[in-house]
C-alpha cells in the first residue's frame, strides 16, 4: 500500500468503479483477457496499468460474477475468454442504477452553491 493513496478520494473512487466497468465491457459478449486489459488501460484514469486488470478479473471470477473459457486462436496459443454470469449481469444492472443516483447527488452537491 502506498501511504497517502488511501486518502486520495479519486484513487478510492477509481478502485470502486473499476470492477463494474469491467463487467460493463463484457455486457456485449465475451472478451479475452488481453483485449480487456488493453481497452481498460486505454481509456485512461481507470486502472494503473494493463497488468492491474488481471487481479481485478481474478476477484470478479472468485465472486462468480464472470467465468472463463479457453478458446483456440487462429494465431498463437489458446486464449482465456471472460464472460458475464447471470450474477455478474445482476450486479452490473444494480450498479448502473446506483451510479445514476450517486452521480446525480454528487453533481447536485458540488454545483449547489454556484
Amino acid at each position: 500500500m502506498v501511504a497517502g493513496e488511501d486518502r486520495d478520494p479519486v484513487a478510492q473512487l477509481r478502485r470502486g468503479v473499476a470492477e463494474p466497468c469491467v463487467l460493463a465491457l463484457l455486457r456485449a459478449g465475451e472478451r479475452y483477457g488481453f483485449d480487456l486489459a488493453r481497452e481498460l488501460a486505454g481509456v485512461g484514469g481507470l486502472v494503473a496499468g494493463e497488468g492491474t486488470v488481471y487481479p481485478l478479473l481474478a476477484r470478479l471470477r472468485r465472486r462468480q460474477l464472470v467465468e472463463t473459457t479457453w478458446k483456440e486462436s487462429a494465431q498463437g496459443p489458446p486464449r482465456r475468454y471472460y464472460r458475464l454470469t447471470a450474477k455478474g449481469k445482476a450486479e452490473l444492472d444494480a450498479f448502473v442504477e446506483q451510479w445514476r443516483q450517486f452521480r446525480f447527488t454528487v453533481d447536485a452537491v458540488l454545483e449547489g452553491d454556484r
Binding site: 488481471y54 487481479p55 481485478l56
Partner: peptide
C-alpha cells in the same frame, strides 16, 4: 511499461486479498 510496475499489480492483487 504498459503492463505497469510489478509492485502496482501486486498491490492490486494483495489489496484484494481480504475480499477473497
Amino acid at each position: 511499461d504498459a503492463l505497469g510496475d510489478p509492485e502496482a499489480i501486486a498491490e492490486e492483487a494483495l489489496g484484494a486479498a481480504p475480499i477473497t
